[in-house]
Structures are given as C-alpha cells and as structure tokens.
C-alpha cells in the first residue's frame, strides 16, 4: 500500500433507495476497500482509457513548434475487478494492442497495472454468463474467490506471486478445492438474466430497418451515459487546447459516445447519423455485429452498467429481446 498506488472499490454515495454507489478510487488504506461491493457505477476501464488524456504538448514558437510526448506511467494495483471487467479489458486489448497501430498509452497502462480480480455473486440483472464473460482465465495477476473465511487465489504473474508471498498464504488443501468448486457452482446457478445472442449478428442485419430501433431511439436522450459507464466502449474524439499567450498547445483525447448528435458529423454540415434511433442502432451494431466480424466475439460483456445508468430506461436485454421477438413474429 505504501509502496504502490492502489485502486479499489469504495462507496461514494447512496442512490434513491439507499443502496451504496461504488466507484474504483485510489485507496489510502486497506480499511477503505469494500470487497463486498456489488457493481461499480463506472467501470475500471478509465484507469486504462482515461476520460481525458493529453496526447501531445506543443510549444509554439514564432515560426514552427516543438512536440513533446510522454508515455511514462507509474505502476499501480487495481484490487477487486470482476471477471466481466477483466474480460472487457481483454476485448480492449484486441483493439488497442493486437490490431493495427498498437496504442502506446494503453500499452503503458496495461503493462504497469497489476490486476487483482474478485469473484462475486451475480446481481439480478447481470447477464455476463450469456456473453461468456462470467469467468476470467487470464488478463489478471491474481484472482480471488471467497471460500468462507479464506480467499482462494489464482496466480497468473510473478509480480502477483511476490506480493502473495508477503502475506501468510497457505497451500490449498483438498477441502479448499471442494469449497472453491462449490462456490463456483453456486455463482453459476445464481444467474437470473439470460440474453440470447447466438443469432444476434445475423439478426442485426435482418432487423436493420426494424421499427424496434425507432421505438427505442425515441426514448434515447442521446446523452452518451451508456458509453461512459461501459467497460468496453472506446470511441473517442480529439480536441486541441491553446493557451491565451499562444505559446502552448495540447492535443487531447476525450472519450466520446456514438449516441451523441455530432458523432458522425462531417465538415460542411452533413451528418451521417442524424437520428437518435440510428445512432442507438449503430451502438448495438458495433457491439454485437461489427466487433464480432473483426474479432469473433461481441464487445458487450453483459455487466448491464449501461442499462443501470440509462436515464431513459433503455437496457440491452430489453432491446435485444425486442429484436428477437420481432424476428419470430
């Protein structure tokens, strides 16, 4: 704790029903850590893709300019990430590291972050099991499963092993093994929400002109909240800041949302996606069809943060169910 920056779930506020609202924040002591947290309102992706990030600083001179880029990231530990959030990172890795033009900022953050995962019992609306992201096999340093009065720790990196050795860790016994299996089984059986995604990629094409998009689009406020809380949304925009003395400029990346009005606007005034319904459709289209085509998996991990945060009450399960229904009618 005193040696590394540690980030973990903390309760920040309470919602209208008195439930705690959690966020991943910097911890000052382990007492602040709430290992029994339900779901963080914002996903921990922002420690890899910050909302705002200075990419390049320019010093402007009379004639010309100089650029300065700083990729240095200090190591940190994130404690308590769920399997779905770890899977979300693995999906982001596909885009940010494993396809054309690996992103150095993301690479630096990923390399310098030790992830300690944590199993949990699914909430009412979690559908990560349907999205195949209820378990994580890699992408973390350590993964903890609560087996009563002990944690069962899966180790996936040397750094995590060194840290583990500082605590009084015991070898697992046969009894622990059974407890671990029982806990996993219990978690698996607790999933209530199911989303059928097997035919979804085809359905996205078949139902491209569907009324469903208009119906949900009319509700959509085009606020972009869903993309902000989503653990996998990575769209961004660029902005340039210039200081008043005109000596310094910054090129900055800020996370964007495909639901915002000017997402597909081009110079000259044309907007390729002027309707909220169309933009909403493309959000789903990218998540369940475009990403599937590129990387053989859907972008969605089934955490339902977007459904939870949406001010207009749009949630992915309802939209997908609606699509499937119009199909079978």
């Amino acid at each position: 704790m005193e040696e590394n920056e540690v980030i973990g779930p903390k309760s920040r506020d309470r919602d209208i029903e008195g439930n705690k609202i959690y966020r991943f924040l910097k911890l000052n002591s382990f007492d602040e850590l709430e290992m029994d947290y339900t779901r963080s309102y914002l996903s921990p992706k922002n420690y890899f893709l910050p909302f705002k990030e200075d990419l390049v600083t320019y010093s402007l001179q009379d004639k010309g300019w100089e650029q300065e880029i700083n990729y240095t990231i200090h190591p940190r530990v994130i404690v308590g990430m769920r399997a779905c959030d770890i899977n979300a990172l693995l999906k982001l890795d596909q885009v940010m590291l494993k396809s054309a033009y690996p992103n150095p900022y993301y690479f630096a953050r990923r390399k310098n972050t030790l992830i300690i995962g944590l199993d949990h019992e699914p909430l009412e609306d979690c559908f990560c099991k349907s999205m195949n992201s209820d378990t994580a096999f890699h992408g973390f340093g350590m993964f903890l499963t609560d087996i009563g009065d002990k944690y069962f720790a899966a180790i996936n990196s040397d750094t995590a092993f060194i840290i583990l050795n500082r605590f009084d860790a015991e070898e697992i016994t046969d009894e622990d093994r059974l407890l671990f299996k029982a806990e996993k089984k219990k978690i698996e059986l607790k999933f209530k929400t199911q989303v059928n995604i097997t035919i979804l990629p085809e359905l996205m094409d078949l139902e491209f002109e569907s009324e469903v998009w208009k119906k949900w689009g009319d509700k959509c406020l085009s606020c972009g909240t869903c993309a902000m809380v989503c653990p996998t949304c990575y769209c961004y925009g660029m902005e340039e800041d210039i200081d008043l003395s005109i000596t310094k400029a910054v090129k900055r990346r800020f996370l964007y949302s495909c639901n915002l009005l000017d997402f597909a606007a081009v110079a000259g005034g044309h907007n390729f996606r002027p309707d909220a319904g169309v933009r909403l459709k493309y959000r789903y289209y990218h998540q369940f069809r475009g990403f599937m085509e590129a990387f053989d998996q859907s972008l969605c991990v089934g955490c339902n943060r977007c459904g939870n945060a949406c001010l207009a009450g749009i949630n992915p399960k309802a939209v997908i169910d609606d699509l499937i229904e119009t199909e079978t009618k």
Partner: peptide, 15 residues
C-alpha cells in the same frame, strides 16, 4: 479523429 482504427468515428456498417 485518429486514422488508426481506434476512435470509431469513421465507422461504416461493421468496419
């Protein structure tokens, strides 16, 4: 906004 397949702003259909 990026030219490198990261910002998604030039998304057409599935690509």
């Amino acid at each position: 906004h990026c030219g490198m397949g990261k910002c998604c702003r030039c998304n057409v259909g599935s690509t």
